[in-house]
Design a protein around this nucleic acid. Sequence first.
DNA 1: CGCATTAATATCGTATCACGATACACTTCT
DNA 2: AGAAGTGTATCGTGATACGATATTAATGCG
Lengths: 153, 153
Amino acid sequence: MMTTEDELGGSEPLTKQDFEALARFRFGIRRYLRFSEETVRRHGLTPQHYQLLLTLKGFPGREWATMRELADRLQLRHHSVVELVNRAQKQELVHRAPHPSDARAVQVQLTANGQLILERLSALHRDELRRMGAALTLPTWDALPDNGDMTAP
Amino acid sequence: MMTTEDELGGSEPLTKQDFEALARFRFGIRRYLRFSEETVRRHGLTPQHYQLLLTLKGFPGREWATMRELADRLQLRHHSVVELVNRAQKQELVHRAPHPSDARAVQVQLTANGQLILERLSALHRDELRRMGAALTLPTWDALPDNGDMTAP
DNA sequence: CGCATTAATATCGTATCACGATACACTTCT
DNA sequence: AGAAGTGTATCGTGATACGATATTAATGCG
């Protein structure tokens, strides 16, 4: 009865450490996104553009996606994705190709230029992620049992 | 020209898996932030407000912060923090208190109401983080494999 | 085949919000 | 007293996602 392992669903009041962990993680995300923004802007891209390119190149199994798929992975309205793709296309980062099996859909693909820039930027991001490591790992309460100890690290 | 790419750290060209890992991680962040936004808005807060409250409650060692400290942890101009705090104060989420040792500074503190809302929201966030687990763990390249192999796909 | 559904496109206006620029008041420190 | 730091105040700007709405075209189901 001690180990309330069934606390999935959220019930236990959070401890000071919980709040600190939550805040620290969020801070990590902020800093990472901040780094990302500054980096990509230095290369002439907006954060949205970079994430678009990355989503294409990093799509499981292939290297292109439809508008709808992009809307899902970018967490945007498919409608906003069109605008984003238009902007990216103007900069020759991506281009549209007809979808082989569904003529309604389009394949959004990387241009050679987009590919090149993405590779550079992604390497920098990979390095930064390595560097940030601890700051971005989520709190260790994944399977955290009850803990009466309050020694701070 | 300007980008003769041999920036430090980055060296190995990224593999398809690297891109997928990078994209997956970013997707995880997006989804988490999306969840966060919808959740806090359902409770009448903006994402910025929630992060402000969380930063206060989760500040290492105490439960308040100065404008300048907030600017650091929120990655904002101290100037923008004032606006944010003003908005939050109008909703009685935070309040200002004189700083004990430095009369120039202020202590931004949680109100009882802000405290209450934050606790609810944070519990939900903790649960979601548990749930997302894998989707938010960063790629396993933490320890760089000493591998000079460059078998091209 | 006909019709509902889905995908993409197109426009227009709206809202949010961080930011730059600037100025001012007050405090602390040297 | 003067310099530097902290907070406050205001105005305008830029970026961009979104809602609402409409259109076109293709798919697929009954």
